[in-house]
Each structure stands twice: as C-alpha cells, then as structure tokens.
Simulated scan of single mutants.
Amino acid sequence: MSRILLRDAGDIPGDHYLPARAEELFWGRLPSDADAPLLTVRPGESVTIDTVSHEGLLEDQGRDPRAFFGRHGVPAELVLPEASELAASTHPHDPGVDGPHVVTGPIAVTGARPGDLLALTVERLDRRVDYGVISNRHGRGSLAGELPEQPGTVSVFTPVVEDASGAHGELPLSGAADAGRVRFPLAPFLGIMGVATPGERLHSVPPGPHGGNLDIALLVEGATLYLPVQVPGGLAHVGDPHFAQGDGEVCLTALEASLRATLRFDVVPAGDAAARFGELLGPLAETAEYLVPTGLDPDLDVATQNCVRAALGLLQARHGMDRHLAYAYLSAATDFNISQVVDLVKGVHARIRKADFA
C-alpha cells in the first residue's frame, strides 16, 4: 500500500488539467446553470480531472479521513490532502439534506447548446490510492431494515492487492484472525458523469436525464456517455469514483476510491444526434461492443420499461428497424441489466451488441 497520486503531480495526459481544490468542489449537490465553469474547452479536447471519494470523510465516519484510514493502517502521508482539506473546511454539507458525493467541475464545452448531446469519452482512469471503502448505512441499500444488523454505519475497508493477473480488491471471509480471503478484479469507472441543469443545484444521489449518479459499471476506459445538453456549454461534472462495482450496487456503495480521470469532450449537434440515436431523452452509453440505452425511475418495473422504450427508439432511428421486430430482437438477443437499486431513482441499462448489425 504505497500509491498516492497527489494534486499537480504524476502523469497528466489531458489537454487541460482540473485538480480537486476544497474551495471549488461540490459536496452533495450538482452544478446548475448559475455556477461559473472552472474550465472551458473546445470540442475534441481532453481534460485530466482529479476526483475524491466521499468514503472516509463523511460525518458518520468522523469527518476526519486521516483518523478514519489511520485506524485501518494507512499512514497519514497516503491519505489524499484534498479529502482532509474538504473535511476540515467550512464547506456547507448537511447529511440530512445533501447527498454524500464529492463532485469536480463544472467544465463548459464551447458550442454545446440544449438539443445537442455532450459526449464524454473515458480515455484513462488512474488510481490515486491503493485502498477504498464499501459502506452500508441504515435505511439504505437493497435490504434496508435487514442490514446492517447492528446500529451504526458498516464501512468495510478494502485494500488493493496486485499479482500476476492484475489488481484486485480483497476482503476477509469473516472477522476471525485466520479467516480466508476473497479477491475480485478492479474495473474503475466514475459513478457520476453529468451535465448541469437550470435552477437549483440538484441533490447528488438520484440520477436523471442530466446523467449524474448513474453508477453504470460499463463506463470504464474506452466507453462514451452521451448526455442531452440542458444548459448552454453543458457544464459537465464528474465524481463518485469507483474501483469496482457489481450491477445493482446492492449494499449501497461499491468499492469507492479516488481516481484521476482523463475524459475527451465532444458535441453531437441536434440534427446528427437525432439521426444517430433518435429522440434521446436520457443518458446513452457506448462501448466498443455495445450500445447502452438507459431507463430511470423510482419504480424498477417502470425503469425497465423506460429502458426498453429507449432501446426501441434507438434501433428504429439507427437501423430503420420496425418497432415490433426491434421488440422481438431485444427479447431474443439483448441483456437488460440493473445498474443500481440504491439511488432513490433506480437504473436499468441494455447491452445491444453492435456486431449484430454490422
């Protein structure tokens, strides 16, 4: 456990760099059209963005990252200064009103207008530390009222270990000193990728047409997220970094830990967007293998229906496929996955194989 990627240090591959400074971060809220951009870029340019995980600095964990991680054997010099600075600051954060997430941004993209799509392509994700946290809190998670079994938040410290097969998270099988271990592969991604909305700053937890806390684990390096622009310039923002997550994120959080992300920003004009994707009312992801329409709603059944409708519209616009035939294809050939069930608004995403239409 020796890695720490400090602000202004290490490899910064983007055309621009946006560090995480406590006085500029959003904590529990997302930027709105009233917030001035920290950076303005041209379409096609990339930005290296430092993100900070909220786990280890929240009020129910003591709001002191050095003390929290120190109890798990992490020396103070391996705790990100930004986390300690934010926790020690007078930054307004009310856990009863605000979300938990730390958000970096906003970034304006020249020429982005409502009706366009803003495309955020993940070019590179670098771990800033070699540990993370998986938390379960009372009243939340998929088994609210059943877990946690005891009072208080359960925050499971999770070190990163590396071997010949790559980097993994590691957990004990029990609390016994001689317990065995389980390892799982890392697949870093940003849980929050969004654009600003008009009016008040939105709560950071529920996702929506603006993107936000989508928690789609497919958004790893090489993936692109398309978001309908809500305000001039887009005002993109990112946060909620993960080292790994299973679809559903059933416990409430997955392996939460800080990342340095390099994203490329592009604008898809309204006319081109309609031809490529149809009437896109919400987020759409794309990987090398899949087109990934999404559906969102507090009711998981409705979220699934919304995702199916989005997939039908995509196939009709992109391939001219008759609606009833597209419906049949989706049933026979497409997986519909639960993105997450723990963010008030539940998420479903479909994986449409691009190779089927080559």
Rank of each mutant, 00 (worst) to 15 (best):
G313E: 14
H324D: 07
H319A: 00
G313D: 15
A328G: 03
L330T: 10
Q316P: 02
L312C: 11
R323A: 12
T304E: 14
D322W: 00
D301G: 15
R318Y: 04
N306F: 06
V308I: 12
H324R: 11
L330Q: 07
G313Y: 11
G320I: 05
Y327W: 10
R309D: 14
R318E: 01
R318S: 03
R323V: 15
A303S: 06
T304F: 15
Y329A: 05
D301A: 15
D322K: 05
L315T: 06
A310S: 14
R309T: 10
V302P: 00
R309F: 12
A311W: 08
R323D: 07
C307K: 11
C307F: 14
A311C: 13
Q305N: 13
V308E: 06
L330W: 05
A310Q: 09
T304C: 13
V302E: 14
A328L: 00
T304N: 13
L315Y: 03
Q305W: 11
L315Q: 03
H319C: 00
Q316L: 04
V308W: 01
V302T: 10
G313W: 10
A326E: 07
V308K: 04
G320N: 03
N306I: 01
R323I: 13
R323F: 09
L315H: 03
Q305C: 11
H319K: 11
L330K: 09
Q316C: 04
A328N: 01
V308D: 02
A311Y: 06
C307E: 14
R318A: 08
Y327S: 15
N306G: 07
L312P: 11
Y329C: 03
A326K: 03
R318W: 05
R309N: 13
L330D: 08
Y327P: 01
L312I: 11
R318K: 13
Q316Y: 03
A311G: 13
H319I: 02
L312Q: 11
L315A: 04
A303D: 04
H324V: 06
M321T: 12
V302K: 14
L330N: 08
H324W: 05
A310R: 04
N306S: 03
H319P: 00
L314E: 13
H324A: 08
H319V: 00
D322T: 00
Y329R: 01
T304W: 15
A310K: 03
Y327T: 04
A303T: 04
D322S: 12
H319S: 00
Y327I: 01
L325G: 00
V302A: 12
A328H: 01
C307T: 14
L315W: 02
H324F: 05
V308L: 07
A326T: 03
Q316K: 10
Y329G: 04
A328D: 00
R318M: 05
L312E: 14
Q305S: 12
H319R: 14
C307A: 15
L325N: 09
A310V: 05
D301C: 06
G313L: 09
G320D: 00
Y327H: 14
D301E: 12
A311E: 08
R318C: 01
